[in-house]
Structure formats: C-alpha cells, structure tokens
C-alpha cells in the first residue's frame, strides 16, 4: 500500500509513544499536525493512552485557566511528552528557534524566524522531548547553533527533570544520550541510507550496532490514519487533513 512521507513520520512518532508505557499525557504545540496525528493514532491503537492536549485548537484542548496553564502543568510534571523543532539543531541537541546570526552574533540577526516560544522552559521540565524537524540538511543540523533558544544538556546542579530523547527527520530516527551529549542513529527511513544521513548532517553522531530500516506503515494503520485520525486532526488542521489524508472538512448540517 503506497503512503505519503507524512504518514511514515506519523507512524515513527506513534511508535515512540506506544512503546513507552510511562507516556500518559502528550501536549502538542502550535502548527504541529504530524505530532498531533501521531498522538491521536497512538490513542486509537492503545484504546485509551495517552491523553492528548492540542493547544491553540478548540478540540482536545483541556486548559481553562489561561495561557500560563500548560507551562504550570508541565512544570509540575503532568506532561510526559512535548515536541520541539528548530531553525538549527546541533550535535549536543542545543536548539535555535530564533534565526541565524549576523556579524558578531546576537543581537545582529541575518535571517530572523518567529522566536523561541516556550522552548527555554519546556525543554527542561518535560521528561521526553521529541525533536521533530522534517528538513534534514546541513543548514539545519549544524556543528554549533548560532543562538541557543534552549540547551540540550545542563550542568549537574541545574534542576532538569526533562530534555531531548529522540530526533525525527525526513531521513531517520536518532536517540539522544544526555550523559554523552550525543545523538545516535537508530533507524533510516526507506529508501534512504546511512551515508545519506551522514552527508546531510553537519555534526558527528554515534551509530547503533545495527541500524534498522524504519518499518513502512501497515495497511490497517493507514486505514485508521485516513479515517478516524484524519477526521479528528482535521478539526484543528483542515488543510493538512485534506492534503495528506484526502479528508475534506465536514459540511455544516442543513436544518
């Protein structure tokens, strides 16, 4: 059964959530239809887990105490998984959401992107942060970021229950080891190769003894994605649901 690249990435992320029974509550930030779909897929497949909180939407949004609530909720340890990306990500998992810097560094900006959002906090307090950046290139995966929105690792005396655990890109899945402050290549998505990952990564990384080929999405999984998950994520991301799953927004019922 043929599939879209987005569908493979959704399945890779859903596997990371399904295989870890400690994942009970996943929060998804703004403009994140692929992570959002992965959480909903996981919930369909396990029957009950995890709770999915999709902020900035009206469905699957449990927060009633204003914009600060998600951060306070995370600070208490009530959120197990969060997703972050970056304009640049380096080999120590430092992330830069701000932009590339000009001569002399910040505040001289070469190319400005929106900004750091809640990353400088969420990266510290959420136990399992999954870095998600589809574009896998040397302009994204650099040796050293121009600006640290949030650091990948911290000194031992800094209170840090959370941090990066995985990196998902259009080419591969990597894990992150905070002790070594290094990524390790775990699996490569078909039809790509380890060499291709190396050629497009600007930092040095470890390689698992056996690098797996990422499994392709099974037909029954794709069916769930293109029906129940697609309809539900379409409430928050109608454009995405239409483009990837071919699901058009429900028409208003005619009275």
């Amino acid at each position: 059964m043929s599939y879209q690249p987005e569908e493979l990435l959704i399945c890779v992320i859903a596997n990371l959530l399904e295989s870890d029974p400690t994942v009970r509550h996943v929060a998804v930030g703004a403009a994140s239809p692929i992570p959002g779909s992965a959480v909903l897929l996981c919930r369909e497949e396990t029957g009950d887990r995890p709770r999915a909180s999709i902020i900035h939407g009206e469905t699957n949004n449990p927060f009633t105490d204003g914009a600060r609530e998600i951060f306070d909720c995370a600070g208490q340890g009530r959120i197990d998984v969060f997703f972050l990306g970056g304009v640049q990500i380096d080999g120590q998992a430092n992330i830069n959401l701000l932009g590339t810097m000009g001569e002399g560094g910040y505040p001289a900006i070469d190319r400005r992107f929106p900004g750091s959002f809640g990353s400088a906090y969420m990266y510290f307090v959420v136990p399992k942060v999954i870095l998600f950046r589809p574009e896998h290139s040397r302009r994204v995966f650099v040796d050293e970021v121009d600006f640290i929105s949030a650091p990948g690792v911290s000194a031992r005396d800094v209170h840090r229950p959370g941090g990066p655990k995985f990196l998902v890109t259009e080419l591969c899945l990597m894990s992150f080891n905070a002790e070594r402050a290094r990524f390790r290549l775990e699996s490569v998505h078909p039809p790509h190769t380890v060499e291709e990952v190396r050629d497009n990564t600007g930092f040095d990384f470890d390689v698992a003894d056996t690098v797996l080929m990422t499994p392709e999405p099974e037909a029954d999984r794709l069916n769930v994605l293109r029906s129940r998950v697609g309809v539900e994520i379409g409430n928050t991301y109608p454009g995405f649901a239409s483009r990837v799953f071919g699901i058009e927004p429900a028409k208003e019922a005619v009275a």
Binding site: A67, R68, F71, G75, Y106, S116, A120, Y121, M122, Y123, F124, V125, F147, I148, S149, A150, P151, S154, A155, V158, H159
Partner: peptide, 25 residues
C-alpha cells in the same frame, strides 16, 4: 506570564524553572 504574575502580586520578581543556559537568559 511569570513577569505579569509578579506584577499581579505586587512583588518585584518571580522565580521560574528552566531558562538557565539559554541565550535568551
């Protein structure tokens, strides 16, 4: 949010987790 909450309480600052090691800080 924390800076506004400090003002709400009439105190000069608010402690907050994270931030340490960020170039924002």
């Amino acid at each position: 949010h924390a800076g506004l909450q400090a003002a709400e309480k009439g105190v000069p600052f608010m402690p907050l987790g994270g931030l340490i090691g960020s170039d924002i800080e």
